[in-house]
Design a protein around this nucleic acid. Structure first.
Length: 303
DNA sequence: ACCTTAAATGAGTTTACCTCA
DNA sequence: ATTGAGGTAAACTCATTTAAG
């Protein structure tokens, strides 16, 4: 039951791009190595109260989200006042590296990073102390299950930025009573999940494309065969009603398929390679669909 | 037994800093 | 004193794997 819920949450929150874009974003030609650039949907994962979750722990009390999450460690780490709001106010940028460089680009870069790392380690130490207090097994890695609330906050944060800078990581860790390393790992795994899901969607899309193209190809081959057969028996050809989808140009006797060849909106390479004035004049009359002047103009004049 | 996911691990990249010619 | 090249360490991300729940 619990599993089902989590699965559902994940499906909702993975933010798959199933819109009708012709190409899935991950198949686009732009920067394949960059982190996902498609917009994540803004599903609300928090409780029905919107922005805060009530009835945590079954106590029936409603508390602000920030103060109620205390699962894996006691709130012992000295709070860096205003840190959370600082991070909240930080504008999300390109990615972790840019954020990092932005954060460290103001004087004493290394020192600052070390200072941050110091904070990080201090916090981790503080957390670890408590966590290790809770651990009963030595040396065995104790896997904890994140609470629903923790996951919800992490999800919310992930929607805003899929990578964290050290400050954000620290603030989140503090907010959730987790070690910064745990937040980091969660984001890593979350990015991996998103990527996997998107890959599955892309794969499905490509399969469908392949199927429809195969079908289209089969259909066209069949029609070409039929037309060839008709051409071999001219008497029959004269009596035949024209095929529904393919039309023969009376000038060059090449086949045109309105369904797949040029349209004013989507001009494709024409079957014609050289065009006479006659071609241009007759094109309008033999074309099985009304030709826009623009389209006629696109047929080059033979010099 | 199987699935989900937290955590570990290793490779690769970026950045800041240091040394030296 | 300045500068560019090369080396190094730290910090990060991603891919893969392991194993707990």
């Amino acid at each position: 039951m619990m599993m089902m819920m989590e699965k559902e949450d994940l499906a909702l929150s993975l933010g798959l791009n199933t819109s009708t874009n012709y190409f899935p974003p991950s198949l686009s030609l732009v920067s394949p190595s960059s982190s996902p650039s498609w917009p994540m949907p803004s599903h609300r994962l928090l409780g029905p109260s919107g922005g805060s979750i009530s009835n945590v722990g079954g106590a029936g009390e409603t508390r602000p989200l920030l103060t109620m999450i205390g699962v894996n460690r006691a709130p012992s780490v000295a709070a860096t006042a205003g840190k959370v709001s600082d991070v909240e106010e930080e504008e999300e940028e390109g990615g972790a590296s840019s954020l990092n460089s932005a954060a460290s680009s103001v004087g004493g870069k290394r020192a600052e990073r070390h200072a941050l790392a110091g904070d990080d380690h201090d916090a981790e130490r503080a957390c670890f102390r408590v966590v290790s207090d809770e651990e009963d097994g030595e040396g065995s890695r104790k896997k904890l299950r994140l609470s629903k609330d923790q996951s919800a906050v992490l999800e919310e944060s992930f929607k805003k930025h899929s990578t964290l800078n050290p400050k954000q990581k620290l603030a989140l860790a503090e907010q959730l009573n987790l070690r910064p390393r745990q937040v980091e790992v969660w984001f890593q795994n979350r990015r991996a999940r998103t990527k996997l899901k998107q890959t599955e969607v892309d794969c499905e899309f490509l399969k469908k494309c392949c199927e429809s193209l195969t079908e289209e190809n089969r259909r066209l081959q069949k029609e070409v065969q039929e037309l060839r057969a008709l051409k071999l028996s001219p008497q029959l050809y004269m009596q035949m009603t024209p095929p529904t989808t393919l039309t023969m140009c009376p000038s060059c006797e090449r086949v045109s398929n309105p369904a797949t060849t040029s349209s004013p909106a989507n001009p494709q390479p024409s079957v014609h390679r050289q065009y006479s004035n006659h071609d241009r004049q007759t094109a309008a009359s033999w074309a099985p669909f009304p030709l826009e002047p623009l389209f006629l103009d696109s047929i080059p004049q033979r010099s």
